[in-house]
Nucleic acid binder design. Sequence first.
DNA 1: ATACGTTTTAACCATATGGTTAATTCATCG
DNA 2: CGATGAATTAACCATATGGTTAAAACGTAT
Lengths: 207, 207
Amino acid sequence: MTGIDLGNETENSIFEAALDVFSRKGKHGARMQEIADTAGINKAMLHYYFRSKDLLYESVLGHVAHHFFSALEDAMSRPGPFTDVLGQMVGVYLDMHAANPAVARLWIQENLNGAPVAERILKQRKQSGAPGPHRLMRRIEQAVDAGEIKPTEPIQLMITVLGMTVMSFISQPTMKTLDPAAMADQAAFLKRRKKHIVEVLTHGLAS
Amino acid sequence: MTGIDLGNETENSIFEAALDVFSRKGKHGARMQEIADTAGINKAMLHYYFRSKDLLYESVLGHVAHHFFSALEDAMSRPGPFTDVLGQMVGVYLDMHAANPAVARLWIQENLNGAPVAERILKQRKQSGAPGPHRLMRRIEQAVDAGEIKPTEPIQLMITVLGMTVMSFISQPTMKTLDPAAMADQAAFLKRRKKHIVEVLTHGLAS
DNA sequence: ATACGTTTTAACCATATGGTTAATTCATCG
DNA sequence: CGATGAATTAACCATATGGTTAAAACGTAT
């Protein structure tokens, strides 16, 4: 489901369950018993494999970050004009989160909580040169310098892309009560969503 | 701080504390004791005024929704071309969340949790004709019909605006580790943020 | 078969948590 | 003042929660 393999059947089921529960309830709201039940295993196994709630959370966040940034790096590095690259990235974001919305939820949860764990992970990845958002910032700078897009603060564009994509998933419960018809077919909705995002990013909505 | 007054000093302090704690930890992760400590009152007062955790949460969400939608309605209803109205709305979003980021966090928390409480509130507001997002959807439709903006699904634009504005606040912990300089001065950042959002919404970033 | 290390389980423990209650303080009015 | 009702507090309760442990089940190499 996530494409992340810890090498052990039980460990994997714990991982997936933990990702799901943490992403919905947050680090503090998640219950070890619920994670165990979701994974279909004895609660003691959580501690056997991950020692404590804190470490389980940290492990989940770390693996998810690695997986996510690797995919992003891949989309980012493809050749072609930057507007195409933007389209690729939007596509990757939407596809990844569609395949597993828990990832986006977890990242949001971290930020609601002040992102202390994510901060450590990001700094470490930056220092070790691993794929991460800092590379994307550089890429945006280059695109601006090359005149491929209007002068834009990299961080503004990052927040914008992140907002337009991630919010598609996060806001779904609210949006479903607002316009059930538009949200009924998830695949179709995401297809229109991607088109909309790319249109806005490149040409805006003014007629 | 929120502009919401329940008519009683103690009740107000509980309300503010609850909003803050719920928005950070979520409904499940929030602890009654922490809310009481934040408010600087005895824990029993929470139950004296709001009976239970569930009802306290519901009360907070309800009042916040009313306050928020009223302000939105106000910005939405001003005359002038729709692109201007969009700018107004973006400004209102950014200003409101800047004044009290807990509101945005709380709404996100609700959605991460499937938004069962928000759903009830929204349906009720729609039925009673109170200000709410359904009015904004109509306004977008009108703008499209009048040719003021390109043909756009109302819900797409709503998610886009919401994403670009709300994400400015939600992602701050992550962004601060990514580009501390850009985020250091909150007011200046938000000023640039608004300009960026309006530019993207109207003309896009292609040079 | 059996000995040995690993995985899994059920029972258990100390503490945290939502909620209650009886007693106390406080304000107000006669 | 003294009485009456609302606001506030400290102590308490039943249960939930993160975490531990000793024993059982399992796999496997000899």
